[in-house]
């Protein structure tokens, strides 16, 4: 089975600093890591390979300095990691990102399944998977919390909040997995060491035979023109240090608001 996983390298979101005054994100303030939601995509790819054999290719688009971090995908069981990197990709929104990724997928030849994460912790749109599937013209199974392959078909559980579909679909297709689908295993020390010695394959705009008008800033219809680090939402809190008087006020509030 030829399996492709899409993974993005993101800043560690619990450490990254935001400058409320200037409205900027200081990406250099935090170490990089594989997008946490993509660890589930990688794990699911490894599980499919364990059961059905095959080959896993990870594809990522990003600046060249993410190369080392991408080797983590190899430590986790990916056979080959490809990094799409080119100044022409800079400023891509989800439409341009998904176009570049779909061109790269096409350039790797035949595949059975593309697996991506539910969303990233930085751009945080959850749109790239669906858009890639459209560029490739293949079915898209979103919010998948269970995945199997039997008799030439994928069987998946698609979760639409309170409605659960058990579906069957034929390859090739694209699946975006939820965090519930599995528990990613931690790579062992040996795997990490071996991964460090491997090479990440780099591809540029030419290499994926891209129409340059569809890439980067020019190929991106959405434009983030302002970023705000919200202080808003803050309220004037009446704080009580003494529980008795606090509870008394809460009871008065509940009554005045018809909550009791």
């Amino acid at each position: 089975m030829n399996i492709i996983v899409l993974t993005k390298v993101v800043p560690d979101i619990e450490r990254v600093k935001f400058d409320a005054v200037r409205g900027v994100v200081d990406r250099s303030s935090a170490p990089q890591e594989i997008n946490p939601f993509d660890l589930n995509a990688i794990e699911e790819a490894v599980r499919l390979k364990e059961r059905h054999g095959g080959r896993i290719t990870a594809i990522s688009m990003g600046p060249s300095d993410v190369e080392q971090t991408l080797k983590d995908t190899i430590a986790r069981g990916v056979d080959e990691a490809i990094l799409l990197t080119d100044k022409k990709f800079a400023g891509s929104d989800t439409l341009a990102t998904s176009y570049a990724l779909s061109q790269a997928i096409k350039s790797t030849g035949d595949f059975d399944i593309v697996i991506c994460g539910e969303k990233t912790v930085d751009g945080d749109t959850g749109q790239v998977g669906g858009e890639v599937s459209e560029w490739l013209g293949i079915p898209y199974l979103p919010y998948t919390s269970k995945l199997n392959y039997e008799d030439g078909k994928f069987k998946a559980r698609v979760e639409l909040e309170n409605i659960i579909y058990e579906v069957e679909a034929s390859p090739p297709l694209l699946v975006s997995v939820t965090k519930d689908i599995n528990t990613p295993r931690l790579p062992g020390f040996r795997e990490k060491l071996n991964a460090r010695k491997t090479q990440v394959k780099k591809m540029d705009a030419k290499g994926i035979e891209a129409d340059e008008g569809r890439l980067g800033f020019n190929g991106s219809p959405t434009w983030v023109y302002k970023i705000e680090v919200p202080e808003e939402g803050q309220r004037d809190c009446k704080i009580y240090k003494d529980p008795e008087s606090g509870l008394k006020e809460i009871m008065i509030m509940l009554e005045s608001r018809d909550l009791i």
């Binding site: 935001f18 959405t222 023109y225 705000e228």
Partner: peptide
């Protein structure tokens, strides 16, 4: 829209 896991608000226009 909120981005970066709810840490920021992005203001976005669409060119198309």
């Amino acid at each position: 829209r909120p981005a970066f896991t709810g840490n920021i608000l992005a203001h976005i226009k669409t060119k198309t």
